[in-house]
């Protein structure tokens, strides 16, 4: 469990750094040039690390199912959704909803056990946990807005 949490914390910290860096690129180059650059570099870095850790195995596609090739397109949905939401709602409200939705769908997926996930039944305790987290997210985002 601690191991899993550590990975999640590393991912979250890097996402926050990435958001700051990317928004600076976005100011100058717009969202599609930024997205292309970000995903292009992510691809290159993954390939290099993959070659380092998995060797030629990186090019072994025998286990690939057809839809695996399309999973990356979800990223396009992410960028479109967030850019449009900020346009209509402003950053604070938009990001609060994005974070809430992220967590809501996470609970949904765990409790349904879709896509080979281990099914985690949705208990009252989980409901309370998620509610408190959401309260924290919203409190954080709105106090941030007052600051600016």
């Amino acid at each position: 469990m601690v191991f899993g949490l550590l990975f999640a914390i590393v991912a979250g910290a890097l996402v926050s750094l990435q958001n700051i860096f990317n928004s600076k690129v976005n100011e100058k180059a717009g969202s599609w040039a930024t997205t292309s650059l970000v995903l292009g570099l992510g691809f290159a870095a993954s390939l290099v690390l993959g070659l380092a850790f998995e060797g030629g195995q990186v090019f072994n596609f025998s286990q690939m199912k057809w839809w695996y090739w399309f999973s990356g397109l979800l990223g396009i949905g992410v960028v479109t959704g967030i850019v449009q939401a900020i346009k209509y709602l402003g950053p604070t409200f938009a990001i609060s909803i994005v974070l809430t939705s992220q967590l809501g769908f996470a609970v949904l997926w765990d409790s349904l056990g879709w896509m080979g996930l281990e099914k985690v039944p949705f208990t009252q305790q989980q409901f309370i946990g998620v509610l408190i987290i959401l309260g924290g997210v919203i409190l954080f985002k709105w106090s941030e807005r007052k600051a600016t």
Partner: peptide, 17 residues
């Protein structure tokens, strides 16, 4: 290791922190 809900939650905390 820890499922989707915990992963997303911990990521959000690290992100905002």
């Amino acid at each position: 290791f820890i499922g989707v809900t915990l992963t997303v939650s911990a990521m959000l905390i690290a992100q905002l922190g």
